[in-house]
């Protein structure tokens, strides 16, 4: 019994997160006017959709318990470097501009997957800056 749950904790947590999302949406939505069936307020539809989310999140959790757990390879490194790269780009773009932001993004995200090739990354950052400037700015 404990094994049934233990091997599926990540999957169950995912279902739990979805249910929490739905419950939060119901709770916030209950602050909006519900209205009546022939003149619906702003709250009616969001609450209805959120109830479906919660019910199906519970159903998905049951389904998880009934099926075999699957394990996939997971590496923390890409998640960290990709997140930091995008975060830094977003922080830098308005304050110091496109070129430093892009070099930071390319070099940081380049660390997500070995081998780290600083030279080719710097070249590609330079090319991308030029392309980005031409196309978007």
């Amino acid at each position: 019994m404990t094994d049934l749950i233990k091997s599926r904790i990540p999957d169950l947590a995912a279902c739990g997160a979805l249910a929490a999302f739905g419950l939060a949406a119901i709770w916030i939505g209950s602050g909006y006017p519900i209205g009546s069936i022939n003149r619906m307020g702003a709250g009616f539809f969001p609450i209805a959709a959120s109830i479906i989310v919660v019910v199906l999140a519970v159903a998905a959790a049951v389904e998880t318990l009934l099926s075999e757990p699957v394990s996939q390879p997971f590496k923390l490194r890409p998640v960290i470097f990709i997140s930091v790269g995008i975060f830094v780009w977003a922080r830098l773009i308005d304050s110091v501009g496109l070129i430093p932001a892009t070099f930071a993004l390319i070099l940081l995200s380049g660390l997500a997957k070995p081998p780290f090739r600083p030279v080719s990354l710097i070249i590609s950052a330079a090319v991308l800056c030029a392309a980005g400037y031409l196309v978007f700015m």
Binding site: I86, A90, L98, L105, S109, K113, S124, A125, G132
Partner: peptide, 14 residues
């Protein structure tokens, strides 16, 4: 791939 994905990220951001 290790040369492709940083470029993709850049195009996503911009």
């Amino acid at each position: 791939y290790h040369l492709l994905y940083p470029g993709m990220l850049f195009f996503i951001c911009i």
